[in-house]
Design a protein around this nucleic acid. Sequence first.
DNA 1: GTGGCCAATTGACATTTGTCAAAAAAGTAA
DNA 2: TTACTTTTTTGACAAATGTCAATTGGCCAC
Lengths: 187, 187
Amino acid sequence: MDQEEQIRDLLLKSLKNSALRRAYSAFARKKAFKKGEHLREPGTACRYCYFMISGIARGYYLRDGKEVTTSFCFDGDPVFSLESATRGVPAYETFEILEDAVMELISFNDLFQLRQQFPEVEKMWLLSVEAYAIWLEERLYSLQFNDAKERYALLIKKYPYIIQRVQLGYIASYLGITKETLSRIRG
Amino acid sequence: MDQEEQIRDLLLKSLKNSALRRAYSAFARKKAFKKGEHLREPGTACRYCYFMISGIARGYYLRDGKEVTTSFCFDGDPVFSLESATRGVPAYETFEILEDAVMELISFNDLFQLRQQFPEVEKMWLLSVEAYAIWLEERLYSLQFNDAKERYALLIKKYPYIIQRVQLGYIASYLGITKETLSRIRG
DNA sequence: GTGGCCAATTGACATTTGTCAAAAAAGTAA
DNA sequence: TTACTTTTTTGACAAATGTCAATTGGCCAC
């Protein structure tokens, strides 16, 4: 049983815990975002843990004046910078809404309380971080040893819908290539 | 305070917990490895958590018959595959000893018991996974947006001693380039 | 519809990196 | 030391990718 399955089990279990449900509702709220909005200013600390309910966001940062896309966030994905959240340091990374979105958010302060109070929340946090690390490993090895064509093929195999919903310039940046090279790969 | 500092604090605290010390000693043991040895067969599950006491190892896997180096392990580093350890699946990755080594090892079964029994162990595990994920992010962004020369410069900045102790072919593989390219970069 | 804007493609060329072969250098064992 | 093996460097060339400029295409406001 991998982490995602364990998290689903824990979620179902948590829903039956009315004290946890109440505490979570008291902390969390929903918020709508318009295309083009940003979750926060670049260079500021990441104080809220967002969950994408609907819509799309991309994580990116500036490098020598150029935007570098590091992730795409779809339904169900958490949206925040792990380094900033766990260390309290400013995040290089920021998030831009690519499609009108609804997100649920809870401050890391409140989430930390929930984690201390409810072991199943702490466990879900751990499993999420484990799953994220394994996902990063995969992406890393793909960048290290696949050429541009292979990386693109892997991406559309894993996220076939991404092509319809995200413009190619961002996808190219995510793959570590230029938009011209991506265009030629597709042709 | 970052994860590494918190882990050090917890370690000091744990050393004062004699029940924990006893339990750990009962489970863990030291083992010496000779240069060229492997920790286990590729394709088998990762059943032991190793800690490098002295010596060097490298993580690698086979891809189209070629070896691909994914990590180097020095004093103090944990040595295992996270995916295999947490999911129980066979690990593509295996570890080869590059310099005669002494390692401490504990089975993941036993470690799991320790984690359940001692909250500080569970906390150290979480902090380690968080730190590992953040380290992976850094490495990922370096591969995504730095050219070979920049990646090499970053590596020797971070691990200046690596050049003296690890042969260049492995370092090139780790950087995602050929040994010929690395040789030219160095010249 | 039309004009304007932005994204995507295409072309020509430069740069980086890979491949293969050979030579040089370094390490190892007798 | 010598002979042998392995690693590293070097050279010539090929392939992949980047850069810059121009063009095409799609989308939206008017």
